[in-house]
Design a protein around this nucleic acid. Structure first.
Length: 451
RNA sequence: GGGGACGUAGUUCAGUUUGGUUAGAACGCCGGCCUGUCACGUCGGAGGUCGCGGGUUCGAACCCCGUCGUCCCCGCCA
């Protein structure tokens, strides 16, 4: 478990808060500095070994685990079980027989709360034989396990690294509404909600607000949930997912957007490797790669490649999951990293704000395929009002319906583009998880609304 | 939305092919024993409306219909 980055020395917090307690509670990671000496710990019972004379109690808090010992007779009075929440007071002392080199001789135990009997699983146990649905059903307990906890610690790290890499590049984080009056790309996959006397929708993307943000700040990003009312049922789709959205101005073309994502992911991964390398090492054989050399292949060339090298004569105007895996494998053979940008999808299949690429019906939009799955869509957007109006009319949409959005393009809108990364999918690829639900605390899909 | 698989103890599963007395295992749980455990060991015990509803049958965990839930693949997408 990677220790969290603490700005304030851990114990300071408790010195402020715990004025009524004579002996201050300390975090387990700090015990070694206090040996020998009296300590007070609070946490969960992680393991319990009761022998005839001596009982061993492994206590766990958010900083680590500590072995505590007590005479079996004295311990039995407390009737403790694994997962009980307790406070332990005792002498921390050097002890070569303990794994950590020290242990705590318990002088007092206070039970703060008891856990039930026959829990679905134990936090110290192997969790790979527990069904995913069971892990989701009992999230607090599964988070206490190392394997599940690792996923969400790394996810938190991804978010922090994403913010850090963009902040250093002069991006400003924005926060926009998820309740909207209309969709950004058509209405079929919007969740409708009651909004007093009229209908509203859950945002399927912060796309418009990001673009408005560019007109204000030049470089913006946003992280937040987006909602897709699509009835898909697969291991990589959610109706609610967390989108890492980036948009910036004064680009020359989609290649600038792709280059930013290369650099962004490279920074994020390097940062993650150094902060969470030990954790990540448990889930993948290699550390996270540099993404600077990830190639960019034209969509048409990809189709040709798949036809000639993989016999895929069935593909016409889109890639299927098998094609995505095949392209990543080809990229891996060529560059050593199973990742590739695919640029120039058919314009007709893309939202109206997508800029064209040449005059052959291709779009200046791209996907990033990473380890066999699409984790990003991005591209250059149209930035002139008249082009947007024409694009809407091409799709038989009355530009008047988008007037409040289009009006923002009269305020001085630079050429711009951006992309969005699905946080859960990225987490899956980083941690080698087969099901996107493993990377969501409380997944929402076509049928799942609880917990 | 299409296709497939599954649902049995707290958990993970066997048992369903070929309906038949008391539904099993492992781990967990409860109790005993064990001078330092760290996946401890060991002896004993408890625990199941076989997802739910209906049907067939002398008899259903097992066969049929419905329903709810879970997992996988595809469509679609991040």
């Amino acid at each position: 478990m990677a220790p969290p980055q603490t700005v304030v020395p851990a114990n300071t917090v408790w010195r402020i808060c715990m004025v009524t307690t004579a002996v201050q509670r300390v975090f387990i990671e700090n015990i070694s500095e206090l040996v020998p000496g009296e300590v007070r710990l609070r946490g969960w019972i992680y393991r319990l070994r009761v022998l005839s004379e001596t009982a061993f109690l492994i206590l766990r808090d958010c900083t680590g685990e500590a072995q505590c010992v007590m005479a079996t007779d004295a311990l039995k009075d407390h009737r403790l079980k694994v997962e009980d929440v307790i406070e332990v007071t005792g002498q921390a002392r050097r002890e070569p027989r303990a794994k950590a080199g020290f242990e705590v001789e318990i002088s007092a135990i206070r039970v703060l709360n008891r856990a039930g009997h026959s829990l679905p699983f134990h936090s110290a146990g192997q969790v790979d034989s527990v069904a995913l649905d069971t892990l989701i059903q009992y999230r607090p307990l599964s988070l206490r396990t190392e394997a599940v906890g690792d996923i969400f610690r790394v996810q938190a790290g991804l978010l922090a690294c994403f913010r850090d890499a963009l902040n250093r590049r002069r991006f400003t984080e924005i926060v926009t509404s998820k309740i909207v009056g209309g969709g950004t790309e058509g209405g079929t996959n919007l969740f409708e909600i009651k909004y007093f006397e009229r209908a509203a929708y859950l945002a399927q993307s912060p796309q418009f607000y990001k673009e408005h943000g560019v007109a204000g700040f030049e470089r913006v990003y946003e992280t937040g949930h987006v909602y897709r009312a699509e009835p898909h049922a697969s291991s990589r789709h959610l109706t609610e997912y967390y989108s890492l959205d980036v948009e910036f101005g004064f680009i020359d073309g989609p290649e600038d957007v792709i280059q930013l994502e290369r650099e962004l992911l490279t920074d994020m991964f390097a940062n993650l490797n150094s902060q969470y390398g030990e954790v990540i090492g448990k889930y993948r054989t290699d550390l996270l790669p540099s993404m600077l050399k990830v190639p960019c292949w034209e969509f048409d060339a990809c189709l040709e490649m798949l036809r000639s090298e993989c016999g895929r004569t069935d593909l016409v105007d889109d890639l299927d999951p098998e094609a995505e895996r095949q392209l990543c494998e080809r990229a891996r053979k060529e560059t050593g990293t199973p990742a590739v940008f695919v640029l120039g999808f058919p314009l007709a299949a893309r939202p109206f704000y997508t800029a064209p690429r040449g005059s052959g019906g291709a779009a200046s939009s791209f996907d990033l395929l990473f380890q066999g799955i699409e984790i990003t869509t991005g591209g250059q957007r149209l930035h002139r009002r008249e082009d947007l109006e024409a694009a809407l009319r091409d799709r038989s949409i009355d530009p008047a319906n988008f007037e409040s959005h289009l009006a923002m393009f009269d305020l001085g809108m630079p050429p711009h583009g951006g992309f969005a990364i699905g946080l859960e999918r990225l987490t899956c690829q980083v941690m080698n998880l087969p099901n996107v639900r493993q990377a969501v605390l409380y997944p929402r899909d076509r049928y799942k609304l609880t917990p």
